[in-house]
Design a protein around this nucleic acid. Sequence first.
DNA 1: CGGTCCTTTGACACGCCTCAATTCATGTGG
DNA 2: CCACATGAATTGAGGCGTGTCAAAGGACCG
Lengths: 228, 228
Amino acid sequence: MFVTNPNQFREATPLHAAALLAKNDPVDAPTRIIQANEPLFCEGDESLVVYEIVEGVVRSSKILCDGRRQVISFGYPGDIIGISHDCRYHNDCEAISKVIVRPIRKNVCSPTATTDPQFCQRMLSYAAAEINSMQEHFMMLGRKSARERVASFLVTLMHRVGNRGDGGIAFDLPMSRSDIADFLGLTIETISRSLTQLRKDGVIDLPNAHHVIVRRTSTLRELAESDV
Amino acid sequence: MFVTNPNQFREATPLHAAALLAKNDPVDAPTRIIQANEPLFCEGDESLVVYEIVEGVVRSSKILCDGRRQVISFGYPGDIIGISHDCRYHNDCEAISKVIVRPIRKNVCSPTATTDPQFCQRMLSYAAAEINSMQEHFMMLGRKSARERVASFLVTLMHRVGNRGDGGIAFDLPMSRSDIADFLGLTIETISRSLTQLRKDGVIDLPNAHHVIVRRTSTLRELAESDV
DNA sequence: CGGTCCTTTGACACGCCTCAATTCATGTGG
DNA sequence: CCACATGAATTGAGGCGTGTCAAAGGACCG
């Protein structure tokens, strides 16, 4: 599932790729390797396949004509990207780090397209989870303050890719401040200020700009929803 | 499709309920009638069925513990609501006007659930369209100004339910200012001011608070994306 | 006619954006 | 190993758009 749901733990997610893609699903196409900052596909491209991310992190985004960008989601291993209803990709997708993806099936183009029922069922479950997850992101963009958004974002990553370690839960931030800003509907300066504030408050450590250690997880979780 | 995509015309939508639900889809459950302001279901309720809206308008929303609300979408006739991946509804759903809904199928609860393949295929197409559509709404909430959001909202409704008439395209706004505000991530005062501005600029007419006539459609469409 | 609720309008405050400068991390060539 | 360049991140100062609070207007209904 995409990282769009800051309040839902990975453990609570009923399915992820391991469960979604049974071993007997035919995977004829070879995996693709995309270097950091290279595109996987662009908005408007013909949508031939759906990808599963095997390794690395991707960024799905849309851009307005005047250059404003909205990052839709960050895709991590296990996530499925490129689902479309009309044979066109509806967003850009670029690699943030070196990425390995696996084309898993011809895309779902029309109601008349014939697809393996079992696969279809699984994709539907995944799409439903995705929709539910995106609804959480609406709440973030529409109703949360800058601090809450940043806290929510960190909580999501913490549960998704965090490693319990010495005095906290650690994880990387492979994406740039600009990516985070465009994901949360803020500016890079606001992201930076919010992170600094969390650091000064002792909630997190920032050994460097792309590594986070959450010291006080419950505090962070509270900050994700309380406007105080 | 939900009204979450301000820049996509209804004509461009590749499928809606008429196409989605073939006549031979078994519909055993009777239609339900919900009066205005009555709930259809609530977040957390057991998700037994997916509904198709036959008549009226519904509001799907989520609420934070401190009362902040985000309206996810407004559902119009032909839309499908209540899709879930885990047997629980993930948002509240209430009738804005008198509503008739048709339970169309037991919900998609798990990958092991057995479902008619053809139905599943159609639901997947619908879900994919829904995801693509929600991505547009992200752009609105994350990157558009108040005026752009209101203009985008009106453009969407214009294409969805507008009627070409005397010197413009007319349609109703059955939802309250509060509903619109919570949909666009703004306040009722900002909604009111934006609509007043559009009226004073001669872009729209507001015969009353719940009826709109778009006079200059191309101007409105430009305002939906240009920050000027 | 009076009550209630919704909408509109106004005045002001504040959070985030904008613009600018500084610091930091990384890589390159001498 | 150290200057230097380059791009990203941080920090600061100030402005603006939207939120907040308050009051007035309108629609609806008993």
